[in-house]
Each structure stands twice: as structure tokens, then as C-alpha cells.
């Protein structure tokens, strides 16, 4: 979808276009951070890693040649950097093992979404009634269990269940038109 544009950006970057560099950065930064933190479990370290990667990209802008997907290229760079860190034991033992033992599956679609979809999702969440939104965010942003949410908000677990169900239903209905962007597989473990 963005391939053409990404490649254009890369070629403009090679010609010292800082503006193009900024666009590429804004397009992929958070997705790459999220990918990194999935393995590092450390937001700060992930940030550093991805920022350093972009600095290198700028430094080597004239040597870098990407033929197909800039997106895949960037994710691969992160992956290599992760392996590098793990080798240098700068990663917590168990995560280092995960990085080095498994082949990290670089599937950008698991981390990257088009900007439009981000905006649409943000709008949909904001459209939830305040209380429902609060419960939903505690669950999805903070990763709290229903029990923990109930305790924190002094409500019953049953209420959390109901509100979460309503939130899901509402988001599904709001975002339905984006169905064509769905890749049709779920990564939720059953």
C-alpha cells in the first residue's frame, strides 16, 4: 500500500531530504518500538534502539538500497539489533533466550497499521461513554484483569464484564467499515 511512497521517501532521504526522513520516522517509529519492546519488555530500551536505528539509517542513507519493502527492511533492522543486544547480554536472560532460540518472526503487519486506521480507532474509543471507556482503557492499556479493574473502581466484576462486552460490540460496529483492512487471522491465543 505504501511501498511506492516508502521507496520514494528512501530515495529522497538518500538525497538528504530531512523532511522525507521525518515522514518515514513518524510512519514507523511507534510500530518498530512496539515490535522491539515485545522482546525487550522495556519501553526505554526499545525507544533507544529504534532511535539509534533511524540515526544509522540517516548516516548510511547513501549506501542503503531497499528494493522492495522499506517496512520489512526496517523491521529486519530491529530484529538484527535485537539479536545483537541478546548476544551482548544486554537483555534480560529469559528474553535473550527467546530472541536467540526462536527465529523472531518479523511480520510487520502484526505491529504496523496505517495512520488512517489509528485515527479511526482513536475516534471510536473516544466515542465510548466515559465509564465504559475508563474500564476499557484499564483493561487494554494497563493490562489489568477484570478483578483488578473491579477492585480499583469499586464495581462488581459482573459490571466490568458487561461494560467490556458493550465496548467490544460498539468498537466492532464502529470499525466494521475497515473490514477490508483486516488480514483475517487472529493472533489471540485460544
Amino acid at each position: 500500500m505504501n511501498t511506492q511512497t516508502d521507496l520514494e521517501l528512501m530515495s529522497r532521504i538518500a538525497g538528504n531530504d530531512e523532511n522525507a526522513f521525518s515522514i518515514l520516522f513518524h510512519r514507523y517509529y511507534s510500530a518498530l518500538c512496539l515490535f522491539a519492546t515485545h522482546f525487550l519488555q522495556d519501553d526505554e530500551q526499545s525507544r533507544e534502539l529504534v532511535q539509534e536505528l533511524f540515526v544509522q539509517l540517516w548516516e548510511k542513507r547513501r549506501q542503503i538500497r531497499v528494493h522492495r519493502s522499506v517496512k520489512s527492511y526496517l523491521f529486519r533492522m530491529v530484529k538484527n539489533q535485537l539479536i545483537n543486544l541478546a548476544n551482548h547480554r544486554k537483555v534480560e536472560q529469559r528474553y535473550a533466550e527467546m530472541i536467540l532460540s526462536e527465529n523472531i518472526d518479523v511480520s510487520p503487519s502484526q505491529y504496523f497499521m496505517e495512520v488512517d486506521l489509528h485515527l479511526k480507532i482513536e475516534a471510536s474509543i473516544n466515542a465510548l461513554p466515559a465509564r465504559r471507556r475508563e474500564i476499557f482503557r484499564l483493561s487494554r492499556e494497563r493490562g489489568l484483569s477484570y478483578r483488578e479493574i473491579a477492585g480499583q473502581l469499586h464495581i462488581s466484576v459482573k459490571t466490568v464484564e458487561t461494560q467490556m462486552g458493550l465496548a467490544l460490540r460498539q468498537l466492532r460496529s464502529d470499525l466494521k467499515e475497515y473490514r477490508h483492512l483486516l488480514i483475517g487471522i487472529s493472533i489471540f491465543k485460544k
Binding site: 517509529y29 512496539l34 502484526q110 497499521m113 486506521l117 471510536s124 466492532r172 488480514i183 487471522i185 487472529s186
Partner: peptide, 20 residues
Amino acid sequence: QQICETARQVDLHLHQRRFA
């Protein structure tokens, strides 16, 4: 499947907000 995918995307969106 589509609901699961929507849920995943919403999660993705919220998690990415940590990395502005």
C-alpha cells in the same frame, strides 16, 4: 475472526501510543 482482529488492532493502537 473479524472481531478478534478488530480487538487486536485496538490493542495495537493503544500500545503504540506509548511510543509517540
